[in-house]
Design a protein around this nucleic acid. Structure first.
Lengths: 231, 231
DNA sequence: TCAAAAGTGTTTTACCTACACCCATGA
DNA sequence: TCATGGGTGTAGGTAAAACACTTTTGA
């Protein structure tokens, strides 16, 4: 390698579309920006990547700093690079998504003061977003809708113990259509990745439903097979 | 927006994994670099994006300059951002893929002199590549292998008129397994996206096969439906 | 006892898989 | 006439889709 070559310096960012499920609603994480540009606007959690960190690592760090959420595994889904997407110049952004379990602990505590707060917002009720974040959200939503059609990833959004009806509702919210109860149950149970528990739902004023757990071991066994075409 | 904010400047690149099918072999486009770093190495066609062009446009331009191929529609599939992937600093790269029809005109004429030549190389016989291009190629290959399993995109690689056997061979090469002839034909014809022609193969020393054309109209009709889960 | 959701089966249809032989053609 | 690939059908299994009523429970 030559030593005479110029050194390149780069500015690019990460944005995160983090899905959660609560109250029968699909939500995403939004932050209120406390910095120009777009100060006081709502936005997806996102920030500039450091020069010496991998983008996957940056995604985790940034999400933590902006929301207090730690150790969230995210997948990259698209890179947005319109010329004018950022008012300060050419800043492309690599978008990540994740689906997480709210687990009751919904209080979000931003560590950094780039943001004034972080909140869960229903995907049906999003405010206007900074930059091209609406476009990023839309594409992220498409991504999980598509993915859930061939991989049962919905468990990541549910509490550890859940009823089949809750699981079905989640599918219905993501796919935006009604599913048949009997067929849905048959299919899900057939996958063999649900463990039926001895427990039942509590605190409901109607017949309590059985609780289920997601069986990670069987899930990985099932989905390490490649998708196949034909024989 | 503030005017006091610093202006960002950015360096990032595009790399292309361009698939072609010829001689029963799946090939990709490689260039020989004529510039440091990695001068005289083989690499995927790729270059630095200009400050004032969208990344999609950059992909097309770069491919044209490096190979002479024009108007190739490409899809982004992943962004590679390891800290040390580029010797001159932090340069992330957005990777694109495309599948194209060789159509006999295999002569590639690079426009730019960043490259000394461009050639089609069998995916089974790749030389060592510059940067992290092997990783990029591998992921691109996975991408089309995966995609072909649920969308019949293989036509893009074949000549306009093709035999079912050619189509099957292509699937076999991409999926890296043998398929059953009867089942393959049944399935393909069932899709209803092939138009049977009145022509037959010529110049073979055995029974000539019927030629087919890909029916774009029916294809779009078929695949504008979303992938669905359940009812 | 009523309201609300839980839970449950069958039939039809479509598609996948496995599998082997005769046919047409040019050399 | 022979070598080479072209072309074809059937049976069995699995999964998807359509469809409606009874059961349990707490209020």
């Amino acid at each position: 390698m030559e030593t005479l070559l110029p050194k390149f310096d780069s500015v690019f960012s990460i944005d995160c579309v983090i899905f959660g499920f609560d109250d029968g609603e699909l939500k995403i994480l939004l932050i209120e920006r406390n910095e120009e540009p777009f100060k006081d606007w709502w936005a997806l959690p996102g920030y500039i990547v450091e020069q010496d960190e991998s983008i996957d690592h940056a995604a985790e760090r940034i999400l933590y700093e902006l929301t207090g959420l730690r150790d969230i595994y995210m997948d990259q889904f698209y890179t947005f690079g319109d010329v004018n997407r950022h008012p300060q110049g050419r800043v492309i952004t690599v978008a990540y998504y994740a689906m997480i379990r709210l687990n009751g602990n919904k209080e979000l505590k931003p560590v950094s003061n780039y943001v004034s707060k972080a909140v869960w917002t229903s995907v049906n009720d999003l405010p206007q977003l900074a930059f091209d974040h609406e476009k990023i959200f839309t594409r992220g939503f498409e991504k999980i809708r598509n993915k859930i059609s061939y991989q049962p990833i919905a468990f990541e959004l549910l509490p550890e113990k859940f009823t089949l009806t809750q699981l079905q509702q989640l599918y219905e919210v993501i796919l935006n259509k009604k599913l048949d109860k009997r067929n849905f149950r048959k299919k899900m149970l057939n996958y063999g990745i649900l463990k039926e528990l001895d427990e039942k739902q509590k605190g409901v004023s109607y017949r309590a439903a059985k609780l289920y757990k997601f069986d990670k071991r069987k899930y990985s066994k099932l989905f390490q097979k490649e998708l196949t075409f034909g024989k």
